[in-house]
């Protein structure tokens, strides 16, 4: 079986039961992606597949063969932190750091969704072609990533800053 992970083609033969999350963590030692609940309830395992955020814990690795997978280890480019990574440090968007990789990948995925014009549950006019950023849009869209330390304000500040958005509070 073969996957492209952070731009590198990786191969392994794994049990059909192996999740994409365990493939990353146990086969490829990419332990930046975290296991928080293993049932799609916390978002700690969020990775990007072809640019879209998913929960790697509910994804069977075998189903994702041939796909482009980006993990937290692949966000920085040539040693330079991705803007959202730098913003998390500056705005204290974490405490223990365990949900952080998922938050970061989720934020990157979310930015893409917004750019593509996808609405959220709090988008007032679903038919509108143009979306407007707001603090509520950001908060709703990031609600699939739990943080038990309670760094939510810092996370929202960091994401808003990294997107260069003036987000109304």
């Amino acid at each position: 079986m073969q996957w492209t992970i952070n731009g590198q083609v990786r191969e392994a033969e794994v049990d059909f039961r192996t999740s994409l999350l365990d493939l990353l963590r146990e086969q490829f030692q990419l332990s930046g992606t975290k296991k928080g609940c293993n049932q799609g309830a916390c978002g700690a395992c969020t990775v990007l597949v072809d640019g879209e955020r998913i929960n790697a814990c509910l994804a069977l690795a075998v189903q994702y063969q041939g796909r482009e997978i980006t993990t937290v280890e692949g966000l920085a480019e040539r040693g330079t932190l991705h803007p959202v990574q730098a913003a998390f440090i500056e705005h204290d968007g974490f405490q223990c750091g365990y949900c952080t990789p998922g938050q970061l990948c989720s934020a990157v995925g979310m930015a893409g969704e917004f750019e593509r014009g996808l609405p959220s549950a709090v988008t007032q006019d679903l038919a509108a072609a143009d979306l407007e950023w707001s603090r509520d849009e950001l908060r709703e869209r990031m609600s699939g990533n739990l943080c038990r330390c309670g760094a939510y304000n810092g996370i929202a500040d960091a994401i808003a800053a990294s997107l260069g958005k003036e987000v109304v509070r």
Binding site: L30, A76, F88, I89, F94, T100, P101
Partner: peptide, 18 residues
Amino acid sequence: SRVDGAEKVTGGARFAGE
């Protein structure tokens, strides 16, 4: 800012089960 920030945002921080 946190001294362990860079490790935590890059996935470099290794937790016990890793």
